[in-house]
Amino acid sequence: MITSRSVPTGLARSALRSLGQPITTPCQQCRTFLRPARHSGSRAYETINLNRMRTQHHDYHRNRRAVLLGGALAGSIATCYTAYRLVDAVRNPTQFDAPASGPDKVDPFVTEGGVKRKTVIHDDEGRELVPTGNSTITTFPRTLDLHLGAQAAQEKVNGVEYTLVGLGVRTVSFLGIQVYMVGYYLATQDIAAIQARLVKEINPIATTLVANEKEELRKALLDPVQGEKLWTEILREVRPRSAFRIVPIRDTDFHHLRDAFVRAVQARSTGRPAEFGDDEFGTAMRDFRAVFNRGKFPKKQELLMVRDNSGHLTVTHDTSGTGAARETIGQIPEERITRLLWMNWLAGSKVASEPARQNIVEGIMEFVERPVGTVATQVV
């Protein structure tokens, strides 16, 4: 067989054809270690599935976009959270003598002889204060002397003393952003009535509760069903004069508070048309919304909501935050509004502030361990 190391051209091609010799190329003559030379008569084919390629291309870019979006979202959340913690640390630096758990972890109760008591301190003017454990709103007054929310004319003149039962912080979102500090106050003169009602709930013949009975009452107050039933009976039947004091930890506005309060009342009244479906309740809800149609609510100012012994609501606003400049901004003469609003902090499966609910229960435990009628004359 005639072969050539170069591709035959011209007369050489004609001569090879006349002799019947095949025309070969150097590539066709090559041998490799792993693959034999390809013959001139063979052809390679590749099957291409365009639909499969299109699907794979679409899936690749879809998954790529999802991964990029998730990374961007996670990065944004981490950046915002880190910025929030840095700003909070700059604005509220931890002092060197602060407890190891941090200023926001301080328990406002101190344990004495196995019994929890509220920690009470005094300021330069001798006023009694209760530490909150918060670095922005550091203390709450132990007592309030109010000249509003009382029915009797003599009480309006002399004022009514309210004693702090418990307090806690309201947080929102999974980041635990602190919104406001809230404290629950009871009229000192009405504590005996609540004592009697709570003690009789556990032991009808007792005047005070022992350790195991206190634990039973604590569980009842913290239980979503039992706690709501017990507090509802107290608010409807005993009707103690009480107040919630709210102090923002960060700047907010009245519209945000209004929306939160309205949602809380509506959530507890929905599905109960027989009790809350009348026109009077609807009118009271509109009036309640109107009370909070105001502007900014800067941090450290005070909002006070007082419930008298008829269930009527009085709302005051104090720009000083000390109670020296309280101004009445609205009144709602509807017992059901205050009852549902109070339950937003006191009981149920979901409350506005779980730390406040827990702290209020601890304050109630201070009352029931003493004989009925003695707390009003000796409040720690």
Rank of each mutant, 00 (worst) to 15 (best):
T3M: 06
L16F: 04
Q21V: 06
Q28C: 00
R31A: 07
R38S: 05
S42A: 06
R52G: 06
D59A: 10
H61Y: 14
L68Y: 14
L68H: 15
Y81F: 15
P93D: 05
F96M: 12
P103D: 03
D104K: 07
F109Q: 08
G114D: 06
K116F: 12
T119W: 05
I137S: 00
L146P: 00
Q151V: 15
A152V: 09
A153F: 14
Q154C: 12
V165Y: 05
T171Q: 08
Q178C: 10
A187S: 09
I191V: 15
A192M: 05
A192L: 01
V199C: 03
K200F: 02
P204L: 01
A206K: 08
N212I: 13
E213H: 07
K214N: 04
K214C: 14
R218F: 10
R218N: 14
K219C: 13
P224Y: 13
E233I: 09
I234R: 01
I249P: 00
R250P: 01
S269N: 00
P273T: 06
F288C: 05
A290F: 08
F297G: 00
K300Q: 09
G311A: 06
A325R: 13
R326Q: 10
G330S: 04
P333E: 03
P333Q: 03
E334K: 05
T338K: 02
M343H: 12
W345S: 13
A352H: 10
N359E: 09
I360R: 08
I364K: 11
M365S: 11
F367D: 05
R370L: 13
T374R: 14
T377K: 15
